[in-house]
Design a protein around this nucleic acid. Structure first.
Length: 430
RNA sequence: GCGGGCGUCGCCAAGUGGUUAAGGCAGCGGCUUGUGGCGCCGCCAUUCGGGGGUUCAAGUCCCCUCGCUCGCCCCA
């Protein structure tokens, strides 16, 4: 084809699908409102350094998945691959943290240069939550509960909450040393990917899918055993809070998560119905990030939820949501003067709040009425040469039982103002 | 970046080397110069993602290329 196409991994959302997306967005908005969480919007484009410093140089996201380029001022810019770094940057930049803890949510497109597959695009959409300035274990559970309840409100079932603790920064540093030493002694036994990660990102080795590596790791020092007493107590408190909320979870000691900034609580909500990309929502605590980006020491927890994956799950439910927006009136006309009046009538009714479509084809009335019927409109207004001359409009009820006899002429002829009044009265009534 | 599958009209889809590329949906026109859900009739791919090659002959075989898709990796 010589015709232009969208870029790989950049998909169009067509009118047919938009209803589902708007439903998800509206439901999320409502859940956040109930939880006292305010929306924040940040630019799609940021200085590359923000992500390099925030997410971590050694991560895949920063190492090989960013859309990075030089702008006309020779600055290195990057299309945001995730939302947390930007939100934290904005909170620091505008001094929000000096006004107290912040409960924020965001939504919008993210960009990652990866091979597309089921549930994964290069431009994808996330809805995310960030609680900045919240240190207690109950806040971890609260953040998770907001995500859990959002999914429940949408009617998504069959989900599993996986939970782990990465411990404090000190725990991780200590464990990291242990693990690197242990891995170093068995270097030849590891798969290539894992070997390359021994020093750059040793914790990720734990999550390797290679069977050989996994078998070997059974005897590796465990992260859990490296946690300090405080960290262990904290993790237990999170679990107790979740239990109190009756949110079921499973412990997954291999859950490490890809981004550097996580500490303590890490979690994912997964579905078995999504193919290979099973994570619908992922998040965790990031107590060090705000400071790392130049802000005050600020404990924080957050998550991000993948819209495409969520919509995928919802569309599998086969429970059709709100049909196409119902049209109140379809205006049919033929002839130049009549069509001008039809346009004026459509506008008059629209200004009064009705949903009106006007047939612009000038085709035979038979054709126009056929379209009027298919449009789903409740009424049709007709303006032909006769009506145009009289300054009247024919009104026909397309849904009334009486009009089952197709071909019936318009029920009545009214002035535009009278027609509008009649429709408004009918819409208000039973 | 690496594997597997696939690419015929806006959508679905026959076709498996031999003359003019089925059919369905949608669309458009008509039967019905001004009135809808049914029906009937007609129109709608000089061309099979693109480019080479083999052959008397290719949508059908070969090569290259582009795209889509699923998976690896990774993650939302």
């Amino acid at each position: 084809m010589a015709s232009l196409q969208s870029l790989r991994g950049m998909v169009d959302l067509l009118p047919e699908q938009i209803g589902l997306w708007q439903h998800v967005e509206a439901t999320a908005r409502e859940q956040f409102r109930r939880a006292g969480i305010a929306e924040i919007r940040t630019p799609l484009l940021e200085v590359t350094e923000l992500f390099a410093r925030g997410i971590g140089e050694a991560t895949d996201v920063v190492g090989k998945e960013m859309y990075t380029f030089l702008d006309r001022g020779e600055r290195s810019c990057t299309l945001r691959p995730e939302g947390t770094a930007s939100v934290v940057r904005a909170a620091i930049q505008h001094g929000l943290l000096s006004q107290g803890p912040q409960r924020l949510w965001y939504g919008g497109p993210m960009f990652r240069y990866e091979r597309p597959q089921a549930g994964r695009q290069r431009q994808f959409h996330q809805i995310g939550l960030e609680l900045l300035g919240f240190a207690d274990a109950c806040s971890d559970a609260e953040a998770i509960a907001v995500a859990w309840d959002l999914l429940a409100a949408l009617g998504v079932g069959g989900l599993a909450l996986e939970l782990n603790s990465l411990g404090s920064a000190e725990d991780r540093a200590r464990y990291r040393e242990l693990l690197v030493a242990w891995l170093e002694q068995r270097r030849e036994l590891l798969d290539a990917d894992s070997q390359a990660r021994i020093h750059s990102n040793p914790l990720r080795v734990l999550d390797s899918k290679h069977p050989g590596t996994q078998a070997l790791l059974a005897e590796a020092p465990s992260l859990a055993s490296a946690l300090s007493d405080d960290s262990q107590a904290r993790f237990a408190a999170v679990q107790q809070a979740l239990a109190a909320l009756e949110i079921p979870f499973v412990l997954n000691p291999r859950l490490v998560r890809g981004l550097d900034y996580y500490s303590h609580t890490a979690f994912e909500i997964t579905s078995s119905q999504l193919g290979a990309q099973a994570t619908v929502c992922g998040g965790g605590r990031y107590d060090g990030l705000v400071q790392q980006l130049g802000g005050p020491v600020t404990p924080a927890i957050g998550w991000a939820l993948g819209m495409e994956r969520l919509v995928l799950l919802l569309s599998q439910l086969e429970r059709p949501l709100a049909a196409a927006p119902a049209l109140d009136l379809y205006v049919v006309s033929r002839g130049e003067a009549a069509t001008t009046q039809a346009l004026a009538l459509a506008r008059l009714c629209r200004q009064a709040g009705l949903a009106v479509e006007r047939d612009a084809s000038g085709a035979a009335f038979g054709k126009q009425f056929k379209r009027a019927d298919r449009s789903g409109a409740r009424w049709a207004a007709v303006i032909g040469e006769q009506e145009a001359a009289d300054g009247l409009v024919g009104l026909k009820d397309l849904r009334a039982a009486a009009s089952d006899q197709e071909g019936a002429q318009a029920d009545q002829r009214l002035s535009p103002a009278a027609l509008l009044q009649a429709l408004q009265a009918a819409l208000k009534g039973p």
